[in-house]
Design a binder for these strands. Sequence first.
DNA 1: TTGTAATATTAAACCATCATGATATATTGA
DNA 2: TCAATATATCATGATGGTTTAATATTACAA
Lengths: 105, 105
Amino acid sequence: MTASHRLPPEFLQTMAEAIRLLGNGQRLQILEHLDMHGESKVSDIVTALGAQQGAISQHLNKMRAAGLLSSRRHHREVYYAVAAEGAVTILNCLRRKYEEDRRRQ
Amino acid sequence: MTASHRLPPEFLQTMAEAIRLLGNGQRLQILEHLDMHGESKVSDIVTALGAQQGAISQHLNKMRAAGLLSSRRHHREVYYAVAAEGAVTILNCLRRKYEEDRRRQ
DNA sequence: TTGTAATATTAAACCATCATGATATATTGA
DNA sequence: TCAATATATCATGATGGTTTAATATTACAA
């Protein structure tokens, strides 16, 4: 029981929609790739994840629309990068959990 | 770019499913209620949220199955409580964000 | 221009999730 | 046992997300 005052349902509803964005395996993989390799072009992400180009493009678009990523075009390629530090925070939580799980087993 | 080594796609998939659980307004409200009021019986949560009994019961069931909540029966009532500190961590992030947003506007 | 590579968009099929209303189960007291 | 209360489960329909294949757009080079 951590106290603090009540958060409005509408706020929680909005936050729920943002959280749902990260509740997808491929999007987490994209986030991890960008965090590990830094700014990357779409084709590199597609190759690294072995996924379908159209699907990745849609994920990137959603994540950018939500402010998680930024993008810029250079010649023919479009480069994406992590724009919200909060996303990396969550990723680091997952890394810690992974290490803990590994130690336990 | 924060380094660390690569997380397996299957792990990220599992994590995504857990994260999705919190991507729901009513479930965030339940979490907040339990965090603020401590262990509570179902009927109190239903009343506090002004929601439908069946819906709340299903949310509680999912959250318990995922290890986010624990439950115990006492007489006719079933009491639920937060079982995973990680869930409260996320809730506290939302609280900080809410306060920041308030200050900005 | 024309062709080509990189990315984005679209439409359709499929699948998962959510809210709802109705019903079932469990516990207790009379 | 019967009735009453608390909670859980089920079936359903509506809605939205995901994947796929196909097509469109953009930028550049020949």
